[in-house]
Amino acid sequence: MPETPTVIEVRALHKHFGAQAALRDVSLTVRQGEMVALLGASGSGKSTLLRHLSGLHHADAGSPSRVDVLGRNVQAGGRLSPRVRALRAEVATIFQQFNLVDRLPVMTNVLAGALPRQPLWRTLFKRFPCCEVQRAYEALSRVGIECCAWQRASTLSGGQQQRAAISRALVQGAKVILADEPIASLDPESSRRVMSLLADVNRELGVTVLVSLHQVDYAFAFCPRTVALRAGEIVYDGPTRELDAERLRTLYGSQTDELFAPGGQPADDGRAGATLRALSPLAVGQAA
């Protein structure tokens, strides 16, 4: 495999919340253009890890922890880099609760992705040049909700709100998308649509995507590589297709049931998520 540049580099990341260890000595390397699933039950440290990558959390002070994204330092030894804002502009985050501003129009929420490029005197009065509005409109068209551009974000359904959040990431021109449980609050149809959008963005725009999931099925369908966490430690890092039900059971024990979508039983042939994989034309392309 030819060497593609490293995009995310995590070294010896340690994080405690009080006495509770959230991440223990986590090291991770993600290369450009990868689509990686971050798998684990609730409380396994997926969100915490993602939040360290965008500098929304900082690691334990005095620990040897170090996070670099796009070749630039995010934090080292629990200290955020002073240039973290410039880096966040290129690293979009998508949240489980969408984190849109309810009372603002969808368009303004999406234009927020352009804030770092615009001078402050202009953005504080919510003024954006036409080219940015055009760009936001194109991003909304790409995810298929351009008709809702002038509605308040609160009037959209969950799936539409998450697509608006993806548009915001597109307007950012992000080179990396960190998606923190993007489908955990969505119905199955919206979940599939959001995941396909992320996969499209990954394939067509070459954006590196790191997506945390707690359902194995979606990892099988959309992500060639999986990193699995348990109690703050990485317990598996490799091709998703090599994760069979047996392996998952040894990794997660009694927590295994939580990892499967409600209603979507793991297939008996030992290949978890085989049903969903059969439904997704995209996964066939990726598996090939």
Binding site: R85, L87, R88, F95, N99, D102, A112, T123
Partner: peptide, 15 residues
């Protein structure tokens, strides 16, 4: 959470 959403785009604290 929405404030964090704005922060995650790399926006200025005033923004």
């Amino acid at each position: 959470q929405p404030v964090e959403g704005i922060r995650a785009t790399g926006a200025h604290p005033l923004e």
